[in-house]
Structures are given as C-alpha cells and as structure tokens.
Nucleic acid binder design. Structure first.
Lengths: 333, 333
DNA sequence: CCTCCCCAAGAAATCGATTACACCTCCGAT
DNA sequence: ATCGGAGGTGTAATCGATTTCTTGGGGAGG
C-alpha cells in the first residue's frame, strides 16, 4: 500500500506538504492540485495507526455491553454505534456476557488499544478494573447501570413515573398481591427498581413483602423461571408480577404456561424494557419502555464532552409504560 | 501512562531488553525479574498502537453486519466475537443497517484502521468496495451472504435438507398452495432459497408459481407485511407461507392478524432463522434454524487461515427444520 | 595463556504519520 | 534601499514499540 512518502515523491513535494494538504492546513491551489492528483493516482489512504500514534487519538470509542444477545442492549449498542459513527468515531464493541471476568479482560484490551473513551454497561459489581480506567485518565461514561464508588457520569432511565402509573393500574384492576423479579441485592439498578416499585405500590395501599421479591444472580431465562416457580409455590401466590428484564420475563412466562396458568387471567405480567416483538407474544406483553436510542445518543454525547474536556453530568431520561394485554388491559388495536 | 522507556530506566536496562523480556525472547532469569518488577511497579502496559505500526499487525478483525437489530445477526456477531476473542483478536463491529452506502463507508474506515482481516455479511449487492478490499490485500471472508464476482471464501448455511423436509411436511398436512416471501431477484441468498424451496415442493407435486413468490427490497417488518397483504388479495391465496427472514415473518403475521386470519388454521407460517423467543409467539413459529454459532466460529477460523496464509475454502453447514405449531404441528411440550 | 565462539544486552534504524522550527521569497512600509 | 512580516515549504524530531546490527564479556579448547 502506498504511503505518504510515495505520494510526496510523485507530487514532487515533501511529506510535510502532503500532510498539510490532506489536513486542510495550507491550501495553495497549485501545490494542492498536484498532491491530490498523486493521492488519486496511487489510491493513497492515510495509515490511521501511524496517525494515532503521533496524535494520541485513535478516533475509536469502546463499548462494553453486558449481554449482546439481550434485545435491549442490542438496540442500545445500535444507537450508540449510529451516533458515534455520525460524529466520526468508530466503535469497538466488547460483549461481557454478564461475566465480570470477561468484562475486565475486555476493558484491558480496549485500554491497550488506546481508545479515546469508554462506555460501560457494567456486568455485576466488579469495579476494580473500572477504577483502573478512571486512574488511567481514559474518559469513562457508565451506561444504564451505575456503579457505586466510580467517579464517572452515568446515563440511564428513570422508571419512577412509569412505575407509579403501573401501580395505579394494577390497583385499579383489582390486583392485590404484586411481586417483582429483580437482580440480587447489591446491584444498584435492581435495588432502585425494587424501591421505586414498592413505594409506588404503597401509594395505592398495596404491600410488596419480601416473600414476593424474587431475585436471581442469573439474569436470564432460567433464573426468571426459577423465581416464578417459587412464587407459585407460595401459599398466597402473586396475582401480578413485574420482571425487571425481558429474558427473565420469558422464563417466567414459560413457568406459568407449564403450570397451565393464564396471563393475565391468573397472573398479570409486566416487563422492564420494551422489545419490538412483545406485540407478538401470547399474550402481548405490557412493558416499561426505556428510551433506548436516546440513552445511546446521550451517552455518546456525554462521553465526547469528557473527551474534549468539557464538563459532563449524569443524564436521567424518563421511561414510560406501554400497556398491553398481559396486565389485563383491553387488546390494543 | 508509563512507556517502555520508563520501564527500561527503572530496571536499568535498555528498551530493547524490555521488549525482549515482554515478548519472551531472551529469558535470563536475573534481568527478567528486574524488568518484570519494573513493569509491575509502573503498571506498564504496552501501547498497542505503536506495536501495530511496527509489526503491521493490529490484532483486530472487522465485522460488517447487515443489521445489528436482527436477532439472527446479533447471535452471529456474538459468536464471531466470542471466537475472535478466544483466539486473541478483538472485533470492530460495523453495522450496515442494510444500507450499501453505509456499508462501504464502514469498510473504508476499517481498512484505514488496518484491521488484520474482514468479515462481511453484505448488505445488497454493492461490491465495488469489496473489490477494493480484495485489491488491498486485506484477507476477506464473506458471511451468510455470498457476493458474485468477489474472490473470497464464503461461510454460510445450506438449507436444502431443511427445505426438503419442510416441503414433505406441508404436503403431508394437505397444504396445496405454498408461497414464499424472499429478497428481490439479484440477491444470491434469496434466489437460492427460492430455487431450493421450489425444487423441494416439486418433488411432492406442489407448484410455486410466480404469483406466490413475493419479494421486497425492504427486508424488514413492513416489507413482509406488504407482501403478505398482496398474497391475501389473490383469487387463490396461499395456505402456507415461508418467510425467508424473521423480521419479514413478523410483518406477515401482523397482516394475518389484522385480517382476522388464524395461524396455522388458515395459513401455515414458517420462518427462516430460529430465534429464542419463537417459542413464545402466538402461535409458536416453525423455523428453519441455521447453525448460527457454528457459522460464526467457522468464519473466524476461515479468516484466520487466510491471514496466516493458509488455504481456506468456503464452508457450507446444514440448516435444520424446527417444527412448531405455526405450520400445523401438534404443540411442542 | 591466548584465541575463538556464543550469547546477552545496548545502540540505532524503522514503521508512517504530524508538527515545531528554520528558511526562503515576496511584498509593503519606513 | 532596507527592514520586517507573512506565508509557503522543507528538514528533522517525535510518538512507542520491534528488530537488526554491533559490541563486550565469559567459557571452552588448544
């Protein structure tokens, strides 16, 4: 592949001039033409590796995503990618697969590659490596999940309004025994969702006792199913369940189906995170929709602010409730 | 951040020695210890950008995916990422969003970043840039979708057996008027699926006339819905439809539902690509499952073979049929 | 005791760009 | 006429690693 020296020779100028022309520094028509012609003829493309070494800017952002196969995170990644690209950055995606060790491994790799900034939707609570990121001076923004003790802005959704509305509807529909499936204590996101839901229910005179708070470290299908099974074995099983993740919700639904129970007749089901195909499930699922694409965009902007040394605060965007049949609503058209 | 010079000074050796120790070249116990100690104390990490410049190897692979929000490609990307990582490469993902222009843009960026190799699940037929990739000497492997005129190995699934089985079942279930929703003529994948399905049906005495071949350039939800609508307006509407993409299938299902038709009673529906939540749709969807993860793995291995100068052939892995209720099977447990 | 060889380690070139600095030329002002 | 400034261009330093070439010291063999 042709390099800048070849171009310089062909155009009869020095490499400095070529560089200047290409970076739009000193455009003297005549010289400029010759250089651009040479670039054309040789099909020259600047080597980004060399450029990055010299300028200490790679033009790449890193994104650590907790689980790429989870549709919520997929859409998030897609939005981040879009926004980064439109701002001239490319994106290196690392999929933690909900495994803290793998996440650390990936962060390490990204730091070694000298990405300009890092977005992390953290798996678990392992923050040792995140502390290193901060120490290394690499701009960091947390996404969707905050991590205590890490000094970095966090971009995420606020479920308060949606949960308040949900509690009201459940109460109005006559549900008396709500339950929640949530990430284990110690995960900030999980604790927050639990607290907000509980408070919202209390406002309508509904209690959320500990026996109807089910948690599982396995934030997947099987975890959701196991928790639902435990719920149904209670002397007074719940008549409305909020699953704080879409995969767990599917597991829960499997368990209900396996026991011959019907949604929403026997148990209402509500899911955190809306996904396009929720309209196609049986029954269509009521969801708490996070503003996914906006979160992605905001995260990129916040990160860029940090990269450029501008001040950057945390961002909180409102989630909203999307009522469908699974919580006892009339079918949507 | 500490660099190799700092380490050298601290250990009282030259940079060359540090480099050798770190790359396991000259292991003299005593010197080695001192260097490693210095590395520890300074928290030194080699700068991959500098290393890449010198060695002309970045240790990164590129993956162009036609649509990241399509669950099939998500799983594919996940598998590729896993495999690449386990082999010491990191992955830069570019999402073409089914737009050829964006795809070209991304390929350009990846080439400029001097990735070691490129995997492309191509959007559309635009192959001008792919030709450039080949010309640039960057190892290239096509994934899922072959591109005529591009001299690169292609890793994809073979639907013959699955389609043959499907045709047999449809015939046995008494379906007489099969139809297919497919990518427009000119896309190799679409044409192949059409030809295979038609041949398989013919073996059971079923015809697939052109009026029951619906295509749409929009490989998404709306495209699928439009085609299904046209089918249903035929004097003799189909009684079994194969959608060659999962998003198009959802669109088709929406149209059926909107018209008050029932699956599979009125129309049987079969989908290309299996997705975890197909068991949760109403009704559960019969699918032709591609060996997604194996495809991803194979693609990485094929690419690595090319990178290392070993010969690499195209790979064809068998897809298989997963019968569920939407094509008239008994409910699966 | 001298020579030769081998091996470890240092010095310096190199990868391909950007950029500080020096130089040269041309022009206008004093 | 001379000086100063400005603008364009070339020379060379630089980024941080790897790698080639060179050097020096120690051990073995004569």
């Amino acid at each position: 592949m042709a390099n800048i020296k070849d171009v310089a020779e062909r155009a009869g100028v020095s490499v400095a001039t070529v560089s200047r022309v290409l970076n739009g520094r000193s455009p003297v028509a005549e010289t400029r033409e010759r250089v651009l012609a040479a670039v054309q003829e040789l099909g020259y493309r600047p080597n980004n590796v060399a450029r990055a070494l010299r300028t200490a800017r790679t033009g790449a952002l890193g994104l650590i995503i907790s689980d790429l196969t989870n549709p919520f995170f997929t859409e998030l990644a897609d939005a981040v990618e879009d926004e980064a690209r439109s701002l001239g950055y490319s994106l290196v995606i690392g999929n933690a697969g909900e495994r803290p060790a793998q996440q650390d491994d990936y962060i390490r790799t990204l730091l070694d590659r000298r990405i300009d900034g890092l977005l992390v939707s953290s798996a678990g609570t392992g923050s040792a490596m995140l502390r290193e990121v901060v120490a290394s001076g690499t701009p960091l923004v947390l996404l969707d999940r905050s991590v205590p003790g890490i000094d970095a802005p966090c971009v995420r959704a606020d479920g308060r309004a949606a949960l308040t509305e949900l509690a009201g509807r459940l109460a109005a529909l006559g549900r008396r025994r709500p339950a929640i499936i949530v990430a284990p204590a110690g995960t900030p996101t999980g604790e927050e969702r639990l607290a907000l839901f509980r408070a919202a229910l209390a406002a309508h005179g509904l209690a959320l006792p500990d026996e109807r708070v089910g948690s599982t470290p396995d934030l997947q299908h099987t975890g959701g199913r196991r928790v639902m099974s435990a719920f149904l074995d209670l002397p007074e099983p719940p008549d409305a369940v909020l699953a704080t993740d879409n995969l767990m919700a599917l597991g829960a639904m499997d368990e209900l189906r396996a026991r011959g129970l019907r949604v929403p007749d026997d148990v209402a089901l509500v899911v955190y995170d809306d996904v396009p195909w929720f309209t196609h499930t049986d029954p269509p699922l009521t969801a708490i929709a996070q503003p996914t694409r906006e979160l992605g965009r905001a995260a990129v902007h916040t990160l860029l602010a940090r990269i450029e040394g501008r001040p950057a605060d945390s961002v909180l965007l409102p989630a909203h409730l999307v009522p469908r049949r699974s919580c006892g609503e009339p079918p949507t058209p």
